[in-house]
């Protein structure tokens, strides 16, 4: 017993003060939300960003005369940034990537750098208690790991009444990772149906939003969207825990 107390003192109090204080420090080389500047884009004369992107997340817009990056597909490999001749594409350190409307996943010149993840229905129903069932449907265990970590005492999601539960029957919604493999399709649907109404769906990681690195493989479904209605999209490969944490809190109106 005395050892347990000694260790407890040695390990200190480690729960982050965020959102009441500043967020935990991100690594200097952190890759956050891309920014498309209004600088001179060579457009179709160049197109290097489009061809270098391994997951077809970039296309050129005739409307803005510049690139559009789909952060729901982007795996944040940063290759487009290196390929861009005029520095039109740059990756910021902004960790706020979660959005509740799919069109806000698109980053183009002139869009605000702040995304809106708030969902009024979720705020009304789940602000003080949100129980989620997690389903990994082809996830590589990175998104899963960055979701598990939210339950540890450093992030302590339980402070906000949020918790991952064992049965879909006990849940208010599901949190999906992975591109939804053909072999998990049915299991995901059954889990979704087992959650009582009203319910929400959260897609975490580029796989769950669009298929990620496996985009257009016949063995998967290009994300959860075609199978269940998604209410919150959290991009990243994998998203930093802070991105998921912040997304969940904004979604339920805990941070405004």
């Amino acid at each position: 017993m005395i050892n347990i107390i000694k260790t407890r003192i040695q390990q200190k109090y480690r729960t982050f003060v965020y959102p009441d204080g500043p967020p935990p420090e991100l690594p200097p080389r952190f890759v956050g939300r891309p920014v498309v500047s209004k600088a001179q884009c060579l457009h179709e004369e160049c197109g290097k960003c489009v061809s270098i992107c391994p997951v077809q997340a970039i296309y050129l817009s005739p409307e803005t005369k510049g690139p559009i990056i789909d952060t729901g597909k982007c795996i944040f490999c940063r290759q487009c940034e290196g390929a861009c001749v005029n520095g039109v594409i740059q990756f910021s350190r902004n960790y706020q990537l979660a959005v509740s409307e799919p069109e806000n996943l698109l980053v183009k010149a002139g869009v605000p750098d702040h995304c809106d993840a708030r969902n009024k229905v979720a705020e009304k129903l789940f602000k003080k208690s949100l129980k989620l069932r997690q389903v990994s449907a082809g996830g590589c265990n990175a998104c899963e790991a960055d979701t598990i970590v939210l339950g540890t005492l450093a992030w302590d999601l339980g402070r906000f009444g949020m918790q991952f539960v064992a049965s879909p029957r006990h849940a208010d919604g599901i949190l999906i990772t992975g591109p939804v493999t053909r072999n998990m399709h049915e299991a995901l649907l059954k889990t979704y149906r087992a959650v009582p109404e009203p319910k929400i769906v959260i897609a975490v990681g580029s796989c769950a939003i669009s298929g990620g690195p496996f985009y257009d493989h016949p063995e998967q479904n290009n994300g959860a969207g075609g199978i269940v209605p998604v209410d919150l999209f959290i991009p990243g490969c994998p998203p930093h825990p802070l991105t998921i944490f912040d997304g969940l809190l904004r979604f339920t109106g805990r941070i405004k």
Binding site: S136, A137, G139, F214, H217
Partner: peptide, 10 residues
């Protein structure tokens, strides 16, 4: 097999 994403084929 639930996680099969077809990596070797690709």
């Amino acid at each position: 097999g639930y996680q099969h994403r077809g990596i070797e084929r690709a």
